[in-house]
Amino acid sequence: MSWFSFSWQNFWFSYLALAFEGLPFVLVGAVVSGIIAAFVPSRMITRFLPKNHLLANLMSGLLGLIFPVCECGIVPVVRRLLDKGLPFSCGVTYMLASPIVNPLVIISTYAAFRGQAPEWNTAIRLLSGYFVAVLVGLCVIKLNPARVLRSGSGRAALRKRSVLSIALLPEATPDNTSATFIQRLIAAIQLASEDFIDTAIYFMIGAAVAAVFNTAVDQKVILPLASNLVLSTASMMGFSAILTLCSTSDAFIAATFVSFPVAARMAFLVFGPVFDLKLFFLYSVLFRKRFVVLLGIGLFVLIGIISAFVLPHLYARLGG
């Protein structure tokens, strides 16, 4: 096969690079998760969320500004928040929004698009990501979490389907309430360690697949797709899914695909953080496989429509 030529030397180099770049971010997510588990009372999570479904989801989409976690670390955080009583739909909204609506991504996107209308591209990325996350969150409000969550994940969410009724659950187990600061600190480290290991398994599998694609596949076979808006949008989303880049750094890659329309590059920047190869495996920690597949297809169609049919008009109004 002329388009596929595998080499162990290339694989190891790319694989290790992805691991070194991504694992610290996975760790950050796990640490946030551990701190939430050990120090944040259940009621605090839900106290500030409005009781109205729509408003609660709108607020959840902004949680990333407070808990800025990229997609590598988001799954353990969401699992923890679901355990702490965050409603399922709000958890989904936060999970999808946080990798885009967070301060690190705002800064990196603005920097990467310097010279290419950075303020507009950053704003469009944020708003698109936020809109998609909230919309998907609202779509799953009526879903029974028991049918989509893996057994053992977010048991609190399994118990009640009502949006905020979870706040009525006991705040913590007895030894939780009596723990000293040191005990909580050690617990946070232990819990973060376990969350990290759970998540890192899937991250490493995703990194291995991405390393094979990055080094063994002839990139020239995919370049002709750039000339058609729909094809370029779909192919850019496909790239982002396969490349499995971190949302805090993917804008630097997207900005270099200058042969692709900016709307297609935006599809890359919105779809990649919410669904890619490693996330397929990571989401599988939390959700059943069937839901993960349907989520991926839904996000692909939704973001594809927005990017191929809405954003070009918006960019035209903004002057290209």
């Binding site: 355990d83 048991r155 232990q190």
Partner: peptide, 10 residues
């Protein structure tokens, strides 16, 4: 360290 507290509810 010994297990210092339960990590999950219940």
């Amino acid at each position: 360290a010994k297990k210092s507290m339960d990590c999950c509810l219940d």
